[in-house]
Design a protein around this nucleic acid. Sequence first.
DNA 1: GTCTATAGGTTGATAGAC
DNA 2: GTCTATCAACCTATAGAC
Lengths: 208, 208
Amino acid sequence: MTTAPAPRRGRPPSGGREEILSATLAVLRERGVAKLTTREVARRAGVSEGSIYYHFTDRFGLLLAVFERGLRPLADLNQRGFAGPDLRGTLAGFMAAVEAFLDPAVDVLTAAQSDADLREALGTHMRDNDLGPHRGITMLGAYLEQQQRLGVVRADVDPETVAYTLVSGCFMRASQERMVGHTLGVASREQQLDLLMTLLAPTEDAVK
Amino acid sequence: MTTAPAPRRGRPPSGGREEILSATLAVLRERGVAKLTTREVARRAGVSEGSIYYHFTDRFGLLLAVFERGLRPLADLNQRGFAGPDLRGTLAGFMAAVEAFLDPAVDVLTAAQSDADLREALGTHMRDNDLGPHRGITMLGAYLEQQQRLGVVRADVDPETVAYTLVSGCFMRASQERMVGHTLGVASREQQLDLLMTLLAPTEDAVK
DNA sequence: GTCTATAGGTTGATAGAC
DNA sequence: GTCTATCAACCTATAGAC
C-alpha cells in the first residue's frame, strides 16, 4: 500500500452532514441557541436549508445530534487509562483531560437548558449512556485509593470526595469566564494542584 | 395606630410589574428561555402583552431585569459577616448560603448564555457591579488566613485556593442535577466539609 | 443529495381606546 | 396602567425540480 491514510466510508471532508454539524456548533458558541436558526446554519455551512432537513428530521434533531457529538469525547475519556508514575503528574494529566473535554461541552450542556424538551432529551441520553462526571470520579477515586494502600496518599481522606473536589474545580474554571464575564476568584490549575498535593501528602499522625 | 403593616408606595401585591417579573422567572425555570414568549409570560402573570411593554422596553429589557433581580442576593451575601465561633460551623454556614444563592442563580446565568447579546449585557452588569464569586472567595480566604494565624488552620495551604475549592464544590452541586440529569459522582455537602476539615487541621510537621 | 420556492404558523412590538 | 386588536418580520418545515 502507498501513503494512503486510513480508509473511510463516507466522503472525507466536504460531507454536507459534517459541515452542518460543525456550523451548528459554531453558531451555538458564538451567537447562542436563540440565534441558531436553520437559515444561519445553512448560510455558514454553505448549504441550503433544505439540506439540513434532508440530514436531520428537524431543528430539534439537529441540536440533539450536536449535543451527542459534543459529549462523545467523554465516553473515550472515561475508558482510557490515565494512571502515571507520579501522583502529581497523574492528577495534572487528569485535570487537563477534564478541562479539554469541558471547554466545548459546557456550551452544549448550557444550550440544552434553553428548552425543557431539549434538557429532558439530553438528560435521558446521558442516563442511558451512563454519561456524566461519575465515571471519571470513580476511576480517579479508585486510583487514589490504590495510592493510599501504597502509602503515597494519606489514609484518612475519602478518595471519591477528593476526586469530586478536583473535578468541580475544573468545572468552575471551565464555566466561569463564559458565564460571569471574568475569572476573578478562580484558582489556577497549578494552585488547585498544589493544594491537592498538600492535602494528599501523608502526615505523621495519619500514617501511624 | 392599628395593626397596619409597614407602609408602602405602590400597590402592595398585585402590582403588575412584580407579577410579570416572577412569571418570567417561573417560565424561565420551567420551560426554558426558548419558550419564554411575551405571550406566555402575559398569560402566567394574568396581564396582557401590552402591559409587559409598558413596564419594560422590550423582551431584552425584561430578561435583563429578571437577571439582575436573580443576582441581587449575591450583593447582600457579599456584605453580611459570617465568621462564627467554630471553624466547621462557619464553613457549613458559608456553603449553605452559597448554595441557597446558586440554586436560582444558575438558571439565570445559564439562560443568559442563550444569546450573545444577553450574555454580553449580563457580563457587563457583573463587571460594573463587581459581582461574581471573587468577593465571597476573598472574604472566606481572609477568614481562613486569620484562623491560620490563630493556629486553628494549618499554615501551609493557600487560603484563597481553599475558598475557591469550597465554592466550586457548591457550584457543581448546584449545577449538575439540572444540567446532567442526575447527581451521580456528586459529593454531599457533608462529605466535602469533612474533607475540608481534614485538609485544614494543623499537622505536627506543618505547625512546627 | 442538494437546490429553490413557498406555505403556515409564531412572535415581538405598536396603536389607540378605556 | 391596562386592555384589545393588529401588523410586519421571521422562522420552521415541506414540495418538487435537478
